[in-house]
Design a protein around this nucleic acid. Structure first.
Length: 292
DNA sequence: AGTATCCTGGAA
DNA sequence: TTCCAGGATACT
């Protein structure tokens, strides 16, 4: 799924188009995607949009919230008066909506918001605002990397991943460092792309057990994690396959991958060919020469 | 700590 | 036809 930079980009889009607007109706085409008190969204106004890790929370003006996780292939697609084109999730070709991947349709006061999801892994849940952070996904979420100002958009008072906190997390980990980076219960928002790229930038082999890292390496990795997330945010996410902004635009980070997906291509630092292995069931890309 | 699982679609 | 995919969870 989209990782922190992609979900934050979705959040900004929802903020731009939905904030202050009323959800007049909701149509559910695939029931397993949606849980909770669905009827509560009808007639409610979207007050603010928060993000925690890779999760989204739309707070309504009636004490209810709409939580969502887009997992691998979920998309929120907005069609307003000035945005009549929609986009094929893969090809980015204009196509009419709803289509076969549209599972939920929100009728807004002035527009329509579609939830599309090819693989159907994503979910939307309507819960009371004061209980939304008690949902299992949010309750067990780890520390938030400080790459976005802690404003109304994220989580006021949220525990932040400081260097010291990162050290504490890494020092006790026996897992390969890459799996630890991607463990949402410890660090929120880092997925496969940014974990691979951060380890390359910090010159650390993804398979190294976390507790083998020196203090210096931990600091380098911490800075690398924040840097690649900021790069992802700067380019508004990676649209290599099927990530699109709420208005259908593409992100650009796929053109700035450091190591992700670069199997058998030369390392841009030393020229050695990048290798692909599997770690924790996920594709892992690294330079066998400069990542020790 | 590993592996299967929810799904579809594109690439090899 | 087989493998692979940016995720998270429920199991062995």
């Amino acid at each position: 799924m989209p990782e922190l930079p992609e979900v934050e980009t979705i959040r900004l889009g929802l903020e731009k188009y939905l904030r202050g607007h009323t959800i007049k109706d909701i149509e559910i085409r695939l029931p397993k995607i949606v849980r909770g008190e669905v009827k509560k969204v009808q007639g409610a106004k979207v007050q603010r949009i928060r993000r925690r890790g890779k999760g989204l929370i739309l707070d309504l003006d009636n004490e209810w919230s709409l939580a969502a996780h887009v997992k691998m292939t979920g998309q929120f697609i907005y069609q307003g008066k000035n945005l009549t084109k929609s986009f094929h999730p893969k090809l980015n070709l204009p196509e009419s909506l709803p289509n076969k991947w549209t599972h939920v349709i929100f009728q807004l006061d002035d527009a329509t918001l579609f939830y599309n999801d090819i693989r159907q892994f994503g979910w939307i849940e309507v819960v009371k605002t004061n209980e939304v952070l008690s949902l299992p996904f949010f309750k067990n979420l780890g520390l938030e990397p400080p790459v976005v100002p802690i404003t109304i958009g994220t989580m006021e008072g949220q525990a932040i991943l400081s260097l010291d906190a990162f050290k504490r997390v890494v020092v006790v980990g026996k897992l390969p460092i890459k799996q630890l980076l991607m463990d949402q219960k410890r660090i929120a928002g880092v997925g496969n792309i940014y974990a691979n790229d951060a380890l390359w930038l910090a010159k650390i082999n993804p398979a190294r057990s976390a507790n083998s890292l020196t203090d210096k390496e931990i600091k380098q990795l911490y800075e690398a994690v924040l840097f690649v997330l900021q790069e992802g945010l700067k380019y508004q996410g990676a649209s290599e396959t099927n990530f699109f902004h709420v208005d259908g635009a593409k992100g650009g980070y796929q053109d700035h991958f450091l190591v992700y997906g670069k199997t058998k291509l030369p390392c841009t630092r030393c020229g050695t060919l990048i290798e692909r292995t599997v770690l924790g069931g996920r594709g892992t890309f690294f330079c066998p020469h400069c990542q020790k």
